[in-house]
Each structure stands twice: as structure tokens, then as C-alpha cells.
Design a binder for these strands. Structure first.
Lengths: 274, 274
DNA sequence: CGTCAGAAAATAGTATTATCATATGATACG
DNA sequence: CGTATCATATGATAATACTATTTTCTGACG
């Protein structure tokens, strides 16, 4: 019944030459290889024409990453100017660098906006909105990963859709956009948490509670239910094996995560009270 | 004391030719002149070279507004794909179209994230952060508009800085970025609310309460104080004079108003509880 | 005779090269 | 010490060839 919408084309297309350059330089900047002060390898290295470079630079400038001026050349802007909420920038950011503090930021944001969004949804959802939420919930039930079925992807997909539907039901498109961004980045970690045995099954009732509250049009109850759900996830984030990548997923920190404050790459120490 | 930072260059520079094209087309899209379905006036009208157009299109594509494909041409993407949190997109959005529902969305978001951010600030602010907040507060006191001094700009500037400093003190850069965006768009309306006689003076004690709570490191108190402050603003938003600009919004079409439907930017009616 | 597959054509963006203009930082000269 | 000049990197335009994708045409097969 739906058009499927060609997967909605998340980021900037890397199919073109200049698109590839965009992603290459973008990653370099976000990874820190190109420092906010000075250069951009605007020629030499790349085996491309000046125009291709130019277009790539324009795209990066549109995302606030670089700034071009005559004579001075193209320089990386200071971090404050970066458009951190841009889908591409977000993707580049989590592609490089230790993801831990970044993940913490994201979950923190979720903790803030999701309960409020659930309350809004309970107040304002239309029939179609509620139907969408319910559909996502049923898909979660159906896609529940078991010992036999290890593939968590469809479950994560439904999970994401569940939250997205709630955000959408709130009828505030700024908020919706924010969470869309957050979710795009969080998807990876969701897969991680869902992979933890029993985690998916345990989260279902909590999702159910949120759905019921919204359906019953009880804003406060919806917010509280969502808060429980999302707090639970927040706790899980600290348990995610770090870097599932090439073969060193050590399950460290079995003792107590609470005292292990190792703020991976934060610049200055901050009195984090947890 | 500070570097002043060259006004930080908010949006995409319009000084260049292609920059002007970017802003022109961007406004057209956000205003609704160019519908999400089809065309982009990729040639004809504009008295510019192909390359300039191309670069402008690339910038717009980077913000998710358009999509280019061979044969099909350059088309405006569906609203879901737009990067609504992009500073430029936000600016274009509020430049055209009735700002009312948009403003409501923004205030709603503020109501959600600011109290939480204040709590975070109370937990994690470093000495320098608190100093920045305090400085902004004192500047607000100093710039207080009176009957004699009608210029509210410096007050608004300090006000904005106050909130920005709190967000920054939270130590969550995603959150900080969100509010930076929100504030850029809200600045205009802040000027409006501040212009209401006595409003600025009345808001001072509430700001003070927030500052004190953060300084005392009382997260809950900070959140509550901020909530009171920001709720107050929310009420004011409904009082802002609507569109002081060039007065050509006539209600001429009295004949077929019901078919005109106009529905500002929302697609379907929603049970807004107002 | 109709339907489907594959080839060819048409089209719009993509890429390269070349040339000139303009702004700005640095340097040298008065 | 101020100003003029020069060098340089981006900005702008134009000409040209390539590439990918949609559409259409054609032909074969059922």
C-alpha cells in the first residue's frame, strides 16, 4: 500500500566522484586528522579536477565544516560552527573516534526528549498515528530474536519505527527531526543492545506500556512509561561491548561499571555525578 | 576578554553568486513555491552560468532539500528528507510563511530541553561555565530596557547568551547544538517578547533563580526554575503581534475560502489542545 | 495478436580543461 | 609608517566530452 520510498536516501550520495571526496574529507575532519585551524588538502593528493574538488568543498561548507576565503584558502572551521545535527556529520562522527562518550550524549538526549514526546503523542495523536505505533509494536513482537533466530536487524528496524512513530505523532516537526537524527546514529548501538540475550524480550512489555498509555490518551502515564523504557536502555549502553569490529571484543568491566569513569576522549574533566 | 569570534558566520555566505542562488531557491522551497514533487528552475530564469547553478544545487542537496538524478533532473525532495535543523533551512523557513505554528513548535522544544539542560548544568558545570552564565546574567541586568531606553537588542543578546551558556555547561554537545539552532531561530521572537513593557524586568528574577540553583548545584531546583521561566515565555508567544512586516496579507478571497484551505504548513488537522 | 526482453536513443547530470576576474594577504618601496 | 604592488587562491564562465538512467523502439516468443 505504501510506496516504499526507496529507503529515503539517508545521507549525501557517495556515488559521484565529488560525493566520494565529500565523505573522505568529512571523515578526516570529524576524525580529527584535519584540525580546526588550517589546511584542507585542496589539491595535490586527490586525483580529481578542480571543479570536482570545488563542489565537494561547497557541500562541506554547507554543513559548516569548512570555510573558504580568497587567498587564505579553504580552512576547517572551529567545532562550534559544525552542523553536528547533520546526518552526514553525525555519521562521520561515529565512524571515527571512540564512540563511548558520543553514545552517552545521544542517550542523554533521548532521555530528555522521548518522554516528553510520548506525552505529546498521547495528547495529539490521530487515529492513523496510533495505528502506525501499534503496527510497529506488532512487528517487534513478530521479529523477536530468539536463541534460534539470531538476526536482530528486523527487530531493531521495528523498534526504531516504534519510536519514530511516537515522535511523529507528537505533531512537532522540529522534535521529530531531532529524534530522526538521533535515531539514525543510535541504530548501531540499538543492534548491540538487542543482541544481549533476553534484552529484546524484556523490553517488550515496556514498549507495550507506552503504547497503551498513548492509546488511552494519558500523557503523564505515557511519559512515565517511556522514561522507564529509555532509562533501561541508558543503563544498557554502558554494557555494550566496545568495538565489535575486528576481533577484540573483550567483555571487560565485569566488576563494576559504576566506578570505572574513564571518560574516553572528553577534553576536560567534568564533575560527572552519576 | 573574549575574541569576539567574527560573529561566527551563522549561515551559508550569500556574498558569492552561487550563495545568492542558494538562498533564493532555498527560500522558494521553504515558502512552498517549489513543491516537493518536481522541478527546480535549473536554468532559464537565473542569469548565471551553469557552474554557479551546479554549486548552488550541491549546497541544497547537502541540506537534503533537493535530489539530482540523471534524466529525471533536479527535484525537490519530500519534506521528510529536509534537514530542518540546518541553520539555513531554519532561517528560510521562518522567513516565509506564517510563523505562528513554527514558533509554537520551537517553544515546545524549549520547554522540553531547557529544564533538563539546566539540571545537567547544575550537575556538571565547571567554574568557567558558571562564570559565563553569571556574566550573561549581569549583562542582562545592565541592558535592561526601560521606558527611556527602547532598544531591546542588547538585552536579547544577553538573554540568548544566558541560555546558551547553560546549555553549554551541560557538557553534551548534541544538546548544545540543538539549542543553538533553536535559539538562532528564536532570536526574532525573543525581541518581540522583550518589547512587551515590563516583560524583561519581570523575567529577571526567574533567570536569577536558575543561576542560583546551578551555582548551588541543585539539579532539581534548577530544572524547576528553568521550567517556570520558560513556561512564562511560552504563554507570551501567543501574545506576540502577528507579522509586523509589510502589510500585504489581505483576506481578499472571501468567496472560496473553504476550498482555499491554506492550512499553513500542517498537512492534516490535529487535535491541538489549546 | 499481445506481451515481454533487450537494444538503442534521448536527456540531464558529471567531469575535465582552460581562461579570466577578484579579493586579500604579504612584501617592498617611498 | 603608510601605501603600492604582487602573488595566490578562490570565484566565475565557457566549451566539450562522458556517464548513467529513463524511455522508446523493435523483435522474438508465447
Amino acid at each position: 500500500m505504501m510506496v516504499r520510498a526507496r529507503a529515503s536516501q539517508a545521507g549525501y550520495p557517495s556515488r559521484n566522484l565529488h560525493g566520494q571526496i565529500v565523505h573522505a574529507i568529512g571523515r578526516q575532519i570529524l576524525r580529527g586528522d584535519l584540525r580546526p585551524g588550517e589546511p584542507v588538502p585542496v589539491q595535490r593528493d586527490l586525483p580529481a579536477s578542480r571543479t570536482a574538488l570545488r563542489e565537494a568543498i561547497k557541500v562541506l561548507a554547507a554543513k559548516g565544516l569548512v570555510e573558504t576565503r580568497p587567498k587564505t584558502g579553504t580552512r576547517v572551521r572551529t567545532r562550534e560552527a559544525w552542523n553536528l545535527l547533520d546526518p552526514d556529520v553525525l555519521a562521520w562522527r561515529q565512524a571515527g573516534a571512540p564512540p563511548r562518550p558520543f553514545l552517552r550524549s545521544l542517550t542523554e538526549v533521548r532521555n530528555i526528549i522521548e518522554p516528553a514526546a510520548a506525552a505529546l503523542a498521547a495528547k495529539r495523536a490521530r487515529a492513523a498515528d496510533i495505528a502506525a505505533i501499534e503496527r510497529a509494536y506488532r512487528d517487534m513482537e513478530a521479529a523477536m530474536p530468539t536463541e534460534a533466530v539470531a538476526d536482530v536487524t528486523p527487530f531493531v528496524e521495528a523498534d526504531t519505527r516504534f519510536h519514530a512513530a511516537i515522535l511523529q505523532a507528537g505533531g512537532n516537526d522540529i522534535l521529530e527531526q531531532m529524534s530522526r537524527v538521533v535515531y539514525a546514529a543510535l541504530r548501531v548501538s540499538l543492534e548491540a543492545t538487542s543482541r544481549i540475550p533476553g534484552s529484546a524480550r524484556a523490553s517488550l512489555p515496556r514498549h507495550r506500556a507506552v503504547l497503551d498509555a498513548i492509546r488511552a490518551r494519558k500523557p503523564r502515564r505515557a511519559a512515565e512509561a517511556m522514561q522507564r523504557l529509555v532509562h533501561r536502555i541508558a543503563r544498557k549502553v554502558d554494557v555494550i561491548p566496545r568495538r565489535v569490529g575486528r576481533g577484540n571484543l573483550r567483555h571487560v568491566e565485569t566488576k563494576d561499571t559504576k566506578s570505572k569513569r574513564r571518560n574516553d576522549s572528553t577534553v576536560k574533566p567534568r564533575p560527572t555525578s552519576s
